[in-house]
Nucleic acid binder design. Structure first.
Length: 525
DNA sequence: GTAGGGTTAG
């Protein structure tokens, strides 16, 4: 066995010089050793010349190689021309299409494969999950179960990741217990997926239980747990866990530090953030990447230390991307820095014109400053460019089903009862002092549309649904794809008090645990 | 002998 891919290629050349004829065992190794597409193409030609153009093993490896070099057309050509395709050929093509975002083509290969194994099902499910098409991933998973294909640890990890994405706790729990009762091997990736699912579904305690029960904790398990504590606003605990990780001799990586910085951001730990930002480089030699800079800008900007946030950007070795400037833009929004916000908003849209949220935030920022003409222009430029608005929704799981609500939506079969409940809810919190202030509505710089009355924002519908469907005292869990707005945040605090319910809302960025009239974010978000 | 899974800011 040679140590490096280079040696494999050199050995192959020596073999040719010695006139030894390569066979079907030669090429898979040689192909995997190719470090550039041009080299791979040459070997491809050799395969054909040697008369191995019909060898499934060699061709499968060629498909894999072209996929790795992101040349899907060449991969597909090999796939199309091979005399006998195996399940491996199909799986490789599907995964390749999936990773490059060609879900339609992935699905076409998937559907046209007659004998479907769990490997094939998973390649397609994972393609959906990785492209954030979670509903499709779930329905494919259902189909898989209908066809009596057993769940293995790969499919389990994919589906758990989808559950984490949508906050589907019930399904996630089911997968977890299936893993336990069927003794599915808990390897690093699966353990990480379970911990992450519980964190992202709002069950920190379950996540900790799984984490503490692991016989071996790899870096990714620590990362998932630290990241989970971070989004729940438990910054101090996250930092303690990080120190424990170091004490146990586990080497942190760039993901660890991203999560550590994020923990600082959500808990307002400014000094700690500054320290860890230096520490990662000084102690572990990890250079901050774009994401780390973005996080650092967020920590400072959110705290209102705009000058220092700008300093961080100035000191970057590369140009800041839309995400870094987006963090600064977000800070301007919170601290009502109209002038810099205007500049950042425009810059961010220039760098990433397809993100609808930024247009809306900028338009709302203008509107809040009374600059109606500019606000209209921003909105127009968005429609002119054909940028689709991301529709805000809140989802709540009940009886194994995910119920989705959009602001002002009436598509739910129980709409009438739900709206009546919203009215009752608002009535009762008004008695406790809630005012839905028109002025606040106009100046609220949320991503969601201002056209829908605040009373019918999607989370209010979801909360009303939760109050209707769950028993008194049950926790209501809601996931939302955008950020919660100020008015809903305020209303939910009061609902938690008046109805004596714990309400957990996960928004785009973090968790809000509402209890007895207060939120775990302490209004810092 | 090849193929599928996890953690990653706002």
């Amino acid at each position: 066995m040679s140590e490096s891919p280079r040696d494999a290629i050199l050995l192959y050349i020596r073999m040719l010089n010695d006139l030894i004829i390569p066979n079907s065992f030669t090429y898979p190794c040689v192909i995997r050793a190719c470090s550039a597409i041009s080299e791979g193409r040459q070997v491809h030609a050799h395969v054909l010349k040697t008369g191995l153009g019909g060898d499934t093993f060699s061709l499968n490896n060629l498909i894999h190689m072209y996929v790795n070099f992101q040349s899907l057309e060449e991969a597909r050509r090999v796939f199309n021309q091979m005399p006998s395709r195996s399940l491996v050929s199909c799986t490789t093509m599907i995964a390749g299409y999936g990773r490059s975002g060609h879900l339609d083509k992935a699905l076409e290969v998937f559907e046209s494969t007659p004998e479907k194994s769990s490997v094939l099902w998973n390649s397609m499910i994972a393609a959906f999950v990785q492209s954030n098409h979670l509903d499709e991933a779930f329905s494919l998973f259902e189909r898989m179960l209908d066809e009596k294909i057993l769940l293995d640890r790969y499919v389990a990890a994919s589906i758990l990741s989808a559950c984490a994405g949508l906050g589907a706790l019930e399904l996630g729990k089911w997968i977890h217990s299936y893993i336990q009762s069927n003794k599915i091997k808990l390897d690093q990736k699966l353990a990480t997926a379970i911990i992450n699912m519980y964190c992202k579904c709002g069950c920190l305690e379950k996540a900790l239980e799984v984490f503490n029960g692991l016989s071996y904790k790899g870096p990714s398990s620590w990362n998932a747990m630290i990241g989970g504590l971070a989004v729940h606003g438990k910054g101090k605990v996250a930092l303690e866990l990080f120190m424990e990780m170091e004490e146990e001799g586990v080497t942190p990586d760039q993901v660890t530090f991203l999560n550590v910085l994020n923990a600082c951001a959500h808990s307002g730990l400014i000094n700690e953030g500054r320290e860890y930002f230096r520490y990662m480089k000084d102690v572990y030699g990890i250079e901050p990447r774009m994401e780390h800079y973005g996080c650092m800008v967020d920590i400072l900007g959110r705290a209102g230390i705009i000058c220092e946030a700008m300093e961080v950007i100035k000191e970057m070795p590369v140009n800041p991307d839309a995400s870094v400037l987006g963090a600064l833009f977000g800070a301007c929004r919170i601290h009502r820095n109209i002038q810099l916000g205007e500049e950042m908003g425009r810059e961010v849209i220039k760098l990433d014109p397809s993100n609808s949220g930024r247009y809306i935030l900028l338009a709302n920022l203008y509107a809040s400053a009374g600059k109606w003409k500019e606000a209209a222009e921003v909105r127009k430029s968005m429609t002119d460019r054909g940028v689709e608005k991301v529709v805000g929704f809140s989802s709540i799981e009940f009886d194994g089903c995910i119920n989705k609500f959009v602001a002002g939506g009436i598509n739910h079969p129980e709409s009438e009862v739900i709206y009546a409940k919203v009215e009752e809810m608002l009535g009762r919190i008004r008695q406790a002092g809630y005012r839905s202030d028109i002025n606040e509505a106009l100046h609220d710089l949320s991503e969601e549309e201002m056209e829908t009355p605040l009373s019918y924002h999607s989370e209010k519908l979801a909360i009303a649904f939760g109050l209707l469907k769950t028993k008194p005292g049950d926790t209501i869990r809601i996931s939302k794809n955008l950020r919660i707005c100020r008015d809903c945040h305020c209303a939910t605090k009061l609902v938690s008090e008046v109805f004596q319910r714990e309400i957990i809302i996960r928004d785009r960025n973090r968790f809000h645990h509402f209890r007895s009239g207060e939120c775990s974010c302490r209004d810092y978000w």
